[in-house]
Amino acid sequence: MKKLILTASLLAIAAGAASAQDVVRMGTEGAYPPYNFINDQGEIAGFERDLGDEMCARAQLTCEWVINDWDSIIPNLTSGNYDTIIAGMSITEEREAIVDFTQAYYPPASSLFMGMSEDFTLAGAVVAAQTNTIQAGYIAASGATLMEFATPDETVAAVRNGEADAVFADSDYLLPIANEDADLMIVGEPVQLGGGVGMALREGDARREAFDAAITSMKADGTLNALILQWFGPDAATF
């Protein structure tokens, strides 16, 4: 208990002393449009860039954006290379055990299968998914053959070149691709996974409340829903 109080007071001192000009390093993947991606100007853009900048402005924090591979995005957060993960990460129990999440800033969205032919059944299929995603976990548990890739783009490329029968990912990532490519189509049934998308911080990081409050205020005045509709289209789920 004594240690807990000491820790809490140390954190409070650190947060208090730092809040004036402390920089919050925002970790993202930069390869998952429209959540986050590197645009043609070479800058980080997307729904989460706009959202993150607005949250930092409301919480009166100075934020800096950092790109990190998805594969190592949680270990690099916990070891302090950056302070938050804002990278389309779904809130799950397994992740909750390692990091702290803010409330969801995007409602639980469905995950879809995308393939080259309508005739698709999960049993016995080879399905591509990104490493360490809830979709990869779902496929691994389903009995289908899981083919993992480090980046989302590689999962789609695996379907295009015939390595995999389908790719399994968030609908918001797959739908724009399926709509523009005549060879690719949504197949099978949508699956509901995860408890919404939230921002992750190290356990016990006091800044979580500030970001939580910023999300609450963005939900209250409708700016969050406006951002969701702007980036995910008129059919997207809102709060």
């Binding site: 390869a31 429209p34 043609d40 997307g46 490329a157 724009p176 523009e180």
Partner: peptide, 19 residues
């Protein structure tokens, strides 16, 4: 890898897989 990957119309210069 980043620039060669396929890009849809979220980007100003969409193109197929050019890796």
């Amino acid at each position: 890898r980043e620039l060669g990957g396929s890009r849809n119309s979220v980007y100003q210069y969409p193109h197929p897989d050019w890796r």
